[in-house]
Each structure stands twice: as C-alpha cells, then as structure tokens.
Computed example of a mutant assay.
Amino acid sequence: MSLGKTAKLNTGAEIPLRGYGTWQAKPGEVGEGVFQALKAGYRHLDLARIYQNQREVGQGIRRAFQELGIKREDIFITSKLWNSEHRPDLVPRALDNTLNELGLEYLDLYLVHWPVAFKSNGDIFNLFPRSPENNNQVDIDDDVSLVDTWKAMIQLPKEKVRAIGVSNFTEEHLEAIIKATGVVPAVNQIERHPYLPNPPLINYAKEKGIHITAYSAFGNNLVGAPLIITRPEIKEAAEKASKRTGKTVTPAQVVLAWSEIGGHSVIPKSVNTPRIQENFVDVELAPDEIALVDSLAKEEKRYNIPAGYKPTSWPINIFNTPVEQDPKFHKVNLGI
C-alpha cells in the first residue's frame, strides 16, 4: 500500500510526509477522526501519552484494520515519552503503557516529548506534579538529564520501537545527547510554521541527518491568536495556485505544502471529515506562492512556550524567549 510522499529516516525507514495529528482531539471524537484519516489515505499517525486519548486512537486503528483492510505494517505510528517518565527506570514502563493503551505490539517512532523532566513518585497518572513552593507550577526534576533519558531510549527493545527521536529540542539539546552517546535522533518534531521557519535548526538537522516533523502548522489556539490560514498572504497564495492549476487550492493546503518543502513531514489535526480530506490533498507551490508564505517569517512568533502555560506553568527556560528568562527559572539539565 502506498504511503504517499515519504522521507527516509537515518534508520532506513520511510516516514510519510503528510501525517494526522491527535493533539487537542477530544475523547469521543478522536477515534472517528483517526478512522476517517486512514480512510482518506493518511498512513502516518502522531500520538502522545499526554494527549490522554490513545485508547480511543487504538479503537480507531483497529476499526480501520477491520473495515478498510489496512494492516499494521501499512501505518507509521509515532508516540511520545511524557516528562514525568524521564527517569531511566521509568522509560521502558512508559513505552509498555503506551503500547497497552493503543493495543499494539510496536511503535514505528518513539519521541522524548520535551527536553524537560518532571519529578515523579512513580505514579503513572500524576502527569503534572505540582511544585511544593508554587501550586501553579510543575515540579521540575533537575536530577534527571537529557543524556540520562536518551540513554534509556537507546536501550528500548527494537521489537517494541523501530526508531527513536525527540521533540521540541533545540540545537543545544541535540548536540548534548549526540556528543554524549553518538546516537543521532531519527526525528526532531518541532513547532514550525510560516511565522517560525527556524532556518538554523533546520540546517543543523539536515547536517546531522535528523528528519524534521512540523506541528502547529496553522498556529494553534493556545493563545487565542488568529490562525495562519486567515492571513491575506496565505489567501493570495491559494488564489494564485487555484488560478495556475485550474483546481481549488485552499489556504490550509498552501501552508501544508509549504511545510513539506525540503522533505519535512507535517501533522495537521482535525476531527472534521471534510477538513481531514482537504488536508490530505497534495499541492505543489510555484515560487511566487512560496514567497508569499515566506514573507510571514518577518513576524516571528512562537505559540508553544510552556513557561507561559496557564493555569500550570513550567518554570524552565527551553527556547530562551523573553518570558522564559526569569532568573528563578530552571535551566535544562543537558547532562554534559
């Protein structure tokens, strides 16, 4: 079965460029969304423990097996290690818990979700342990380093996870784990969109052979800002592409096509069947259309900054943005 456009990981595996995301997909709708995505042709599913919907995702996958004749090997499935399970002794259990939730025997890709360790008492249900000093902040574990966690990821059995990678890592974070272990992540999943193209990180990843997956391609609703697809530049690019091709090209399709330039993958999320189908349509952009999308980069904006989360913030500097530079905030423990 065709995976559509793919990129080759440093493991030799193929990852489909157009994936289906499940972040912020609510219980009661995500299973149907997964089924409709697989029915529409998606063969790349992006999941995570913290989304708290993996059991229902598993139901959607099994329904696709039964009703669509899709086999497990037809789908590239990613999930992620949550922050409260960074301790090396907890990493294997976390993977097993995800596989049990999904009802699967293996993952194609398992990512360290954030370069941040939360303190843990071993309770798998306590996903956001609160700081004893401030109940509105999570309790950061400075004793667990990125290298500690990455070494535990490396030791995971290959029959349970085919490739390992990271998410939300900067060049500094990547360099630390690579230098310490010699093992290069297969993937770095990052916030990436026309406001945040991040050329230095993209160039670093290309040099190291790390595949980039983009999330929040349209922006996100965490901060209440208008989605990128509402921008006049994006609408103009869609109009130009429609006129050039003689087919209707939507703003969402423009942004997703832009996201894949360079062989990156992208994981749009919707639980609306027509939008799921719309987001899967492949579009090739002309240079002038690409330039319109690129023009938004001058308004650089990052949406996903955990230090600003409410009601429970993460007092740690991950990206060195102004809001993260509070001297009381923790530094990422690189382990070097």
Rank of each mutant, 00 (worst) to 15 (best):
E172Q: 15
N126A: 11
A214T: 00
P199N: 10
Y309P: 07
E171R: 15
S120Y: 10
G69L: 10
L292G: 05
S79P: 00
I202G: 08
L196G: 03
R49S: 15
W150T: 09
L146R: 09
I177A: 14
G33S: 05
G209H: 10
V161P: 00
Y42T: 00
E159Y: 09
L95T: 06
V187E: 11
A40R: 09
W82P: 03
V293S: 10
K269C: 02
L296W: 00
V187K: 13
K39Q: 12
D148K: 14
S242H: 09
L38W: 04
G19L: 07
N135K: 15
K298S: 09
N320T: 07
A163L: 06
D139I: 13
T11W: 13
V30Q: 02
T170C: 04
S270G: 03
S265A: 11
L95K: 01
V254D: 08
L296R: 03
A64V: 08
H86D: 10
P232S: 04
I210Y: 08
V293G: 04
P199Q: 12
D143M: 14
T273D: 14
Y309T: 09
V266K: 01
S2N: 15
A117C: 14
Y204Q: 07
L174A: 12
V281S: 02
V30S: 00
D139A: 14
K71G: 14
A37I: 00
N134A: 14
A241W: 06
L146A: 10
D139N: 14
E289N: 00
L17S: 06
A214W: 04
F329S: 06
A37T: 06
R62C: 01
D141Y: 14
E56P: 01
Q24S: 05
G224C: 12
Q24L: 09
I305R: 02
G103S: 01
R55N: 12
N272P: 01
F218Y: 04
Y195C: 12
D294E: 15
P315Q: 00
F118L: 13
F169I: 08
P16Y: 06
N97H: 13
V34I: 10
S242K: 05
T248I: 12
P88L: 07
P274T: 04
V293M: 09
P232G: 08
I202F: 10
A225N: 13
I261R: 13
I234F: 05
K208A: 09
G33W: 01
R275A: 05
I140Q: 04
I228Y: 03
G262K: 08
H44V: 10
L104P: 04
A152N: 01
K39A: 13
H330F: 14
Y303I: 08
S265R: 02
T149D: 07
I336A: 14
Q66T: 14
L201C: 06
P274A: 00
N97D: 11
D294I: 06
N279Q: 03
P132R: 03
I267F: 00
E159V: 06
Q24I: 01
P311G: 08
